[in-house]
Amino acid sequence: MVRMSAEERRESVIRAAITEFSRGGYNGTSTETIAKRVGVSQPYLFRLFAGKQAIFLEAARRCCRDVTDVFQKAYDGAAAEGEESMQCMGAAYQSLISDDPEKLHMQMQMYVAVSAAEAAGDHEFGEALRAEWMKMWDVVNEAMGADVGETTQFLAYGMLINVLVSMGFQPDHRVWAGFDTSAQPGR
């Protein structure tokens, strides 16, 4: 039996944390649940991470980076093919949230956790996640030719899609009527 290195185990914890936090949120997920999913003890979990907030932060960072990578790859592909970057990034994101809904749910949990931390006076937590989100914004802004209005519109449209999908609106629901049909999940 091959033993995992601490870095491999840490990676397992991040993946498990995304799954668990995407389902239960920050307050509804215990470190015990994450440790069980990975197959380690809680004391070992805390040798890898300073605490629950550190685990959540790494899971949220990973989620942001994964979404940013999806946008970057779609933008790079669009530039290479001479296609409209906005359409390529939108389609790539739709594929991501259809194929890996945990990413979408983790994003939504991240927004709730930052809001709650800010309300409780913890600004450092939000600062770290805002920095990751701004990297995503910068990739989209570059793809939009540094047009702040288009960047804002693209991300606002995406956020509305996130909310509707998170709330379980089916593709045939009337709430999707104002969307381009390619933006609707499952189409």
Rank of each mutant, 00 (worst) to 15 (best):
G28N: 07
A50F: 12
V13H: 04
S115A: 14
T33W: 00
F71Q: 03
R61K: 15
F154H: 01
M136T: 14
A6P: 03
V67F: 05
S98N: 15
V140R: 00
R130Q: 12
L57R: 02
C64Y: 07
P101E: 06
R23Y: 05
G90M: 12
A16G: 08
E84C: 03
D100Q: 11
A16E: 02
E118D: 15
K135L: 12
R65N: 10
S22D: 04
S22K: 00
A92T: 07
E11T: 11
P185N: 06
W176E: 03
A50Q: 12
G121N: 06
Q107M: 14
Q53S: 14
S98K: 11
Q107D: 14
R187P: 11
V140A: 09
A131I: 04
L48T: 00
E7Y: 10
H173E: 06
V165T: 08
A6I: 13
D180H: 04
S95L: 04
L155D: 02
C64W: 01
V2W: 11
Q170A: 13
M4G: 04
G126S: 05
H105C: 12
L96C: 06
M159N: 10
E83D: 15
M86Q: 13
D172G: 13
A91K: 11
R62I: 02
A131K: 15
G77E: 14
T29R: 01
R15Q: 15
M167W: 12
D172P: 07
A177P: 05
H173V: 06
R130M: 11
Y93E: 11
E8W: 08
I14A: 08
M136R: 10
Q53W: 04
D76P: 02
Q184K: 15
S95P: 03
S12C: 14
I14G: 05
G158D: 07
A59M: 06
R62M: 12
V13R: 01
A116M: 04
A119F: 05
N162Y: 07
P185L: 05
A183Q: 09
P101S: 08
E102A: 15
G90D: 10
A128S: 11
M110A: 11
D100L: 07
I55E: 01
R62P: 04
D180C: 08
V165D: 00
Q184P: 01
M134V: 11
R187E: 12
A80I: 01
A16S: 14
D138K: 09
A177I: 03
T181K: 14
A113E: 02
A16L: 04
S182A: 14
E132L: 01
W133C: 01
R9A: 11
E124I: 01
R3P: 05
F169C: 09
E84V: 13
